[in-house]
Amino acid sequence: MELANWISILMALIAVATAVVTYAVFRSATDPTVIVYAQPDLQRQSIINLIVENIGRGAAHGVYFQPSRPLPTNAFSINIPKDMPDQMQSGPIACGIPFLAPGQRLSITWGQYGGLYKYLGDEAIRIDTFCYRAHSKSLFSKKLKASSTLDIRMFETSESAEHGYGPNLVKELKAINLTLKSIDRQLQKRLQAPLV
Rank of each mutant, 00 (worst) to 15 (best):
T109Q: 09
V20K: 13
Q186C: 09
F65I: 09
P72Q: 06
V170P: 02
A17T: 00
M154T: 06
R44P: 03
K181I: 08
F130D: 03
V196S: 15
D128T: 12
A134L: 11
E172V: 11
N74K: 10
C131M: 04
G114M: 02
R153T: 09
P167Y: 08
V21Y: 13
R105E: 11
M1T: 02
R185L: 10
S160D: 04
K142C: 05
N5M: 10
S46L: 04
E2N: 15
P85Q: 01
A75D: 02
P167D: 08
M11S: 15
A38G: 05
S158W: 08
Q104V: 06
H163T: 00
I127S: 10
N74C: 08
R133V: 08
L173R: 13
V21G: 05
L10P: 09
E53F: 07
Q186W: 09
P85A: 04
T18W: 15
L195F: 02
S90K: 10
K181Q: 12
F155N: 10
H61V: 03
I7Q: 15
L71W: 04
D184S: 14
I125Y: 06
D128L: 13
I47Y: 14
T73S: 05
T149W: 04
I108K: 08
V20L: 14
V170F: 01
Q188V: 08
L71I: 07
P32I: 06
Y117P: 01
Q186V: 07
Q45H: 06
Y64S: 15
I80G: 10
Y37L: 04
L173A: 10
E159H: 12
I80K: 14
R57E: 09
G103F: 07
A193M: 09
V36Y: 03
S148M: 02
Q89M: 12
K181N: 10
L173W: 01
I176P: 07
S8Y: 15
M11A: 15
D31W: 07
S77H: 07
N168A: 11
S160L: 01
P32F: 01
I97Y: 01
G58L: 08
G103T: 03
T30Q: 05
D31Y: 02
L178D: 13
L178A: 13
E162W: 13
V21I: 13
Q66V: 14
E2S: 15
I108A: 09
I93E: 01
Y132P: 06
A101R: 10
A75Y: 03
T33N: 12
G103R: 07
K118T: 00
G114N: 02
A146C: 11
R190T: 01
P72K: 05
Y23P: 00
W6T: 11
A101Y: 09
L187H: 06
A75F: 01
P98V: 00
T157H: 13
P81C: 07
A161E: 04
L191T: 04
Y64G: 11
S107L: 03
D86S: 09
T149C: 03
P167V: 08
W6Q: 14
I183C: 03
I55H: 04
V196A: 15
N79I: 10
T179N: 13
L139Y: 02
K137E: 06
L106W: 11
I9C: 11
L100Y: 08
V52P: 08
S147D: 00
E123M: 14
K118H: 02
I108Q: 03
I7N: 14
K174W: 12
L120E: 07
S148P: 03
S148E: 00
G91S: 03
P167T: 04
N79C: 11
S77P: 00
M1R: 15
P85K: 02
Y117W: 06
L150E: 02
T129F: 08
